[in-house]
Design a protein around this nucleic acid. Structure first.
Lengths: 150, 150
DNA sequence: ATCCACACGTGATTC
DNA sequence: TGAATCACGTGTGGA
C-alpha cells in the first residue's frame, strides 16, 4: 500500500503535496515498522468508544462555558473561546482597578484620622481628643466666652 | 498525490448504510435525504483546506487561553477549559464580593455622619455640631464642672 | 504494551 | 449553491 505516511503526519510534517517519490522509500523517522493488525476486528471498538467519550467531555465543557460567559455573539466554538478570553481579560482588568482603588482609599482614609484628632461616639455622649496648643483649642474659646459672660 | 484510499478515513468503506447493528436505544438522527454528488473531485480539496484552517484557528484560541489562565494543571484541552471556567467563576465571585463590600462601606460611612453629629476640621481649628438635649451635651458637663470649680 | 490525547480527512448539516 | 462547522472514525506518538 502506498499511503502510510500521508495519513496524518502528526506534528512533524503537516502537509507535503510535493511528494512524488512513493516507491518503497522507508521512512527514517521512528521504527514504526509494525504492520497494522488487519485481523483484529474488535480492537478499535475500545478506541472508538474512548474517543467518543473524550469528545463528549470536551463538548460538555464547551456547553458549560457557554453558560458562564455573557454576550455570546454566536454559538460557534471558536467565537465562543474568543469571547470568553475577552471577557476574562475584562474581569482581570476590573479586579485590578478595584484593588488599586481600594488600596488608595484605605491609605488616604487611614492616614488622615491618625495624627491630629480622634472622635469617638458612645451611647449618650462622645469623646473628642486633640493635639494642639491650648489657646487654640475650640473648647477654650467657648469656656472663655462663657466665663466672660457670667 | 495518493491521498485517497480507505486507510485514512474509514468512513468511506463500511460506514453509513443507515443502520448499524446496534441493539441499544439509538436516537434517530435526521438523515438528510439526498444523494451526495460523487462526481465533484475538486471540492474536497477546498473542503480539506477549509477544515484545516478552522482547526488551526481554534487551536490558536486554545493557545491564547492557555496564556491568560493561571494555574494550568495540565496542558490537556479539556482540563484547560475546566480550569478556565473555574478561574472565571472565581473572578466573578471576587468582583461581586468587592462590589458589595464597596457598597456597604459607602453606605455605612454615608449613613452615620448625617443624623447625629458632624465633625469638620479646618486649618487650625475644628467645628463640632450635634443634635441632642443640652443637659446631655459633653461640653455642658465640662462647662458646668468648670463653673463650679471657679 | 495499554491508555490517552491529538490531528487529520471526510460525510452531514446549517446558513 | 458554496462556505463554514460539527461529529465521527482512525493513525499515531507519548507515558
Amino acid at each position: 500500500m502506498s499511503g502510510n505516511f500521508s495519513s496524518t503526519a502528526g506534528v512533524s510534517s503537516s502537509e507535503r503535496p510535493k511528494d512524488k517519490s512513493l516507491a518503497q522509500i522507508d521512512e527514517r523517522k521512528p521504527r514504526k515498522r509494525g504492520r497494522k493488525p488487519a485481523n483484529g476486528r474488535e480492537e478499535p471498538l475500545n478506541h472508538v468508544e474512548a474517543e467518543r467519550q473524550s469528545r463528549e467531555k470536551l463538548n460538555q465543557w464547551f456547553y458549560t462555558l457557554r453558560a458562564v460567559v455573557p454576550n455570546i455573539s454566536k454559538m460557534d466554538k471558536a467565537s465562543l473561546l474568543g469571547d470568553a478570553i475577552t471577557y476574562l481579560n475584562d474581569l482581570q482588568m476590573k479586579i485590578r482597578v478595584m484593588e488599586t482603588e481600594k488600596q488608595m482609599g484605605n491609605s488616604s482614609q487611614m492616614q488622615f484620622p491618625v495624627p491630629e484628632i480622634d472622635f469617638q461616639e458612645r451611647h449618650e455622649d462622645a469623646v473628642v481628643r486633640m493635639n494642639c496648643p491650648l489657646d487654640s483649642h475650640p473648647v477654650s474659646d467657648v469656656i472663655r466666652t462663657l466665663k466672660e459672660t457670667l
